[in-house]
Amino acid sequence: MSYIKKNISILGPLIGLILFSIFLGIMNDSFLTLNNILNLLRQISVNSLIAFGMTFVILTAGIDLSVGSILALGSALTAGLLSSSMDPLLAIFLGLLIGFLLGAINGVIITKGKVAPFIATLATMTIYRGATLVYTGGRPITGLSDSFTFEMIGKGYVFGIPFPAILMIIMFLILYFVLNKTVFGRQVYAIGGNEEASILSGIKADRVKIWVYSLTGMLSVLAGIIITSRLNSAQPTAGASYELDAIAAVVIGGTSLAGGRGRIIGTLIGALIIGVIDNGLNLMNVSSFYQQIVKGGIILLAVLLDRSSNK
């Protein structure tokens, strides 16, 4: 009973996901094939990774609009390092560190500068994008490493499973543990639940928030490296409007934009729903113009259902 109650927020999205999948499976023979499912998992990995970070941010009652720009800047700088024939593992590590720092800047502006997260990240979204354009001169960075390690990240398979999907699942498990089993995770919920009460109970809310934005920055660059590896180039316009899909996945997954309430497994389901819509409608040859209408409709439906279940 308490198990159902605890999971009620993801029950709706989960049922939605199953119904969609059955519907698409009936409409199209190739949808429920192993190949397509693995393909789907790879497709959603980029959005999922960003959305995992976004879940933490939204749980603290914040928002991060700059994820797409961080993705682009981090990818471009990583690509730059790779094309100067740096060791790929080191380049990836430095890329992730850059993402972490760009996120930390967001966090510091929001906490120490006391700027609303929406405004702060709206500004850094523009700044980071501009920096990407300056660094790349507006042109893609190509001619990257042909090392096995780097190719593996975006294009590789392990036991027939796409490597990005594995990366996504590993990150999910780690972040699930962090959010549900650690003091840090509990503090993230607490800040979103009542920031003043949290501080008065001894939580260093500013520090926790800076960590949350840093984590999101790092996950965004990780997602960017997957794209860079797949395309074997870094695009200056990469990640544009990715924040919207990430926020959509979090919201569809039942996390409250007011903070303090939500689950990361919901976000995974949310990302799957978005992926299933994209993938399924593609298979059915529905125009991408219509896909947007459907996606928007689903977001609206998810929020409306969440609202009525909270009454």
């Binding site: 509990r186 919920y189 639940g193 009542n194 009460a197 949290s198 008065l200 939580i203 303090g260």
Partner: peptide
């Protein structure tokens, strides 16, 4: 300043 109203009793006490 004292409670996370949406959260369960347990999480409030642990805070």
């Amino acid at each position: 300043k004292g409670l996370m109203l949406e959260a369960p009793i347990r999480e409030n006490i642990t805070l």
